[in-house]
Amino acid sequence: MSRAILQLRDVHKSFGEAHIIRGAQLELHTGERHAVIGPNGAGKSTLFHLISGQLQPSSGQILLGEEAIQGYSPQHINHLGLSRSFQITNIFPGLSVFENLRIAVMRKHGMQYHFWRSIQRYSEVRAQTEQLLEQVRLQDKQTVCAAELSYSEQRALEIGMTLACDPRVILLDEPMAGMSHEETDYALNLIREVTQGRSLLIVEHDMDVVFSLCDRISVLVYGEVIATGTPDQIRADRRVQEAYLGEEQCA
C-alpha cells in the first residue's frame, strides 16, 4: 500500500528570473488521497502543470511508477495513466454534457483516428459514458450544453472527464473553488466515491475538505515542500504553523 506511484525528486522550475519551484520533493503513495496545501503563490498550480506536462521542469525528476515523465507531452502522460482537472473550469462549452464525457471516454478505446464508423455503433463507449454520467450525477443534464450548466455541475463534469480514461493517478486542482457549502459537500462525496481505488493528489484551499478527505498532506511554501504527514501530524507541525498558518493569520 505504501509504494510510491508518483514521485517528485528535487524539481525546479524558473520563469526567467522567477524561481517558482525550488527543489520540490513529493511522494504519492498508491491508493492514498494526498493533498497539497500552501499559501497563495506557493506554486501549487505550477507543480500540477509540471506533473501533467503542461510545463517542463527546469531540472529534477518526476517519476510515474518507474518511468521518468518530466518533459513528456500531456497526452503521453495521460496515456501512462495520469489524468488531471483544472482550477479554472476547462470543458468543451459548446458541446452537450454527454458529448463532453464521451470524448473523454473515447480515448481509452484508442479511437482518435476512427473515421469509418459512426460513433453510435460503439456500444461500449456509450455504456461507459452513461455509467460515468451516473457517477457524476449528471444523467438529467446529458443533452444540455455544457456552457449552460451551473458552476458546481461544470466542476462535476470536469471531474467526470478526468476520470473517463480510468487513470491510476488523479490530479484535482482546487475542485471546490468558488462553491457554496452544499455544493462543497456534494463534491466532497463525489470525489471520495470516484477516487475509490485510485491515487489522488489534490490542491484545495478548503481546510475542512482537506482534513476530512485526505490520508496525507504536504505543505508547499515558496516552491518547497516543507512538511508531509497525516492530518494530525500537519496540524501539530510547528514549521507549518509558522510558515503557513502564521502567514494566513497575518493576512
Binding site: N90, E99, Q112, I119, M161
Partner: peptide, 23 residues
C-alpha cells in the same frame, strides 16, 4: 458522426483540454 468527427468539434471548443484527455 464518427469518433474523429466528434473530436473535431472538441478541437474547436477546447484544443487545450483535449491534450490532457490524452489526444
Amino acid at each position: 458522426l464518427t469518433p474523429m468527427g466528434r473530436l473535431t468539434f472538441a478541437l474547436r471548443e477546447n484544443g487545450h483540454r483535449l491534450q490532457f484527455l490524452g489526444y
